[in-house]
Design a protein around this nucleic acid. Structure first.
Lengths: 229, 229
DNA sequence: CTAGAGTGTGACCGACAAGTCACATGCTGC
DNA sequence: GCAGCATGTGACTTGTCGGTCACACTCTAG
């Protein structure tokens, strides 16, 4: 995803002062987080950013260019966030498959609480229509899927998971469930969905979330775990 | 969902000859199946149907009106399809929870193969942006969720499912997994996704599908099933 | 034959979008 | 001070949309 793509905008964009560039980026994120590709409006972004339409097109080739930049950048930030969290961990002890999985669920939630708009962009990218939907979907899908798939393979290899488990199927179930937790958690904990996508500061009933994770991991562990363990 | 809503269009629409009404409906379905709410174009529908723009607005209040009609009608057709399949069954013997679940997975696939456009509309309705997204999402969600939730409750009551299982969580996992099978199956069986949403006649590797169901049900059964059974 | 309700029509309107371009401004090296 | 390049500008073009409306047609009741 990242390697070749990360800086799609024109060089002029990166010549801008940090402040101006950040302002434009922030407003663009906000726009694409609150509306899907078609409804997000360049006109609106430039109005808010108080720059001329023409200037915008000095920075970006076109709407797609900006969009891909935002999706990539959101995706990279997510990966960095997870990396950072992993490095920040004290205990070096390895977790077994399901403890590791649980940890990842937790981190995902953390990211979406800290960066609701980036999360929104990523979520939209995968499902809402856009001229580049297919490509973006596959990129994101691969980026999300690979780590889990690897984890599953390792889990099978080291006996945490049943040997006869289909790794593709297991990966699918885990990813799908994790991804849709964003609908289930607010519903179960009776939280206003609107608020989650806007404010950066949400107090979540962490105990409630933990309980959901417990239930989830329990089902997955019984369902996929090796019986000898 | 159905009760009050099913016939949103104006009476004039139902005064139309069966043929004309069907033509308009079919073209509208096709339009809203191939584009999301915003990109679906009334202008395009009337052009294809060879009726005047003004005529369209004699039949429907506005774009939302048509859209809600289509979503409702797709939803009703899905329910009818399942009902019909159930009635067509010879054996009256009751299935246990997981056999019942498996049967429902199968029927869902059948419906999406027989009515790819209706399926597309329903899928879009739940996730893509529209002025009535929230309402539609909740309606559909409820319509899908309730039957499964009931099934789960019964499963727990009769001992097919663990007594300590959270019914909401179980329902969520089942629904989410079932819903996303539409991504997994084509990927796993290496089928062109495009084709699935267009043609009505697709030959699916049913053995492959059965194998996926087997794996899925196995995980769910071990994960949620009562250990005594 | 005619009055008038119901139906059909498509040019038209206002809104808004993405993207362009001729021109203005600022900035640097000479 | 000035040539010339990079950057900034916003009115403008082109396109599409949802929705309207003054008018035409049709068909039935009297």
């Amino acid at each position: 995803m990242l390697h070749s793509a990360v800086l799609m905008p024109k060089p002029t964009f990166f010549n801008l002062s940090e402040k101006k560039r950040q302002k434009i980026t922030d407003l663009a994120i906000s726009e694409f987080a609150s509306a899907d590709y078609d409804n997000a409006s360049i006109s609106n972004i430039v109005k808010q950013a108080k720059i001329a339409k023409g200037s915008f097109y000095q920075y970006f080739e076109d709407k797609k260019d900006l969009y891909l930049y935002l999706v990539d950048s959101a995706s990279v930030q997510r990966i960095d966030f997870i990396e950072a969290a992993r490095k920040a961990e004290k205990s070096k002890q390895k977790r077994d498959f399901f403890r590791e999985l649980r940890w990842r669920f937790g981190i995902s939630i953390q990211f979406s609480l800290h960066h609701p708009q980036l999360t929104q962009i990523i979520n939209r990218a995968a499902y809402s229509d856009s001229p580049v939907k297919k490509e973006v979907f596959q990129r994101l899908q691969a980026a999300y899927k690979k780590p889990i798939h690897d984890l599953v393979e390792r889990g099978i290899a080291n006996g945490d998971l049943r040997a006869d488990l289909d790794p593709d199927l297991a990966t699918f179930m885990i990813l799908t469930t994790a991804d849709n937790l964003r609908y289930f958690i607010p519903e179960k904990l009776e939280i206003d969905t609107e608020a989650l996508t806007e404010s950066a500061e949400i107090v979540l009933d962490m105990q409630g979330v933990e309980r959901i994770f417990d239930g989830l991991i329990q089902v997955l562990e019984r369902g996929m775990g090796s019986t000898t363990a």
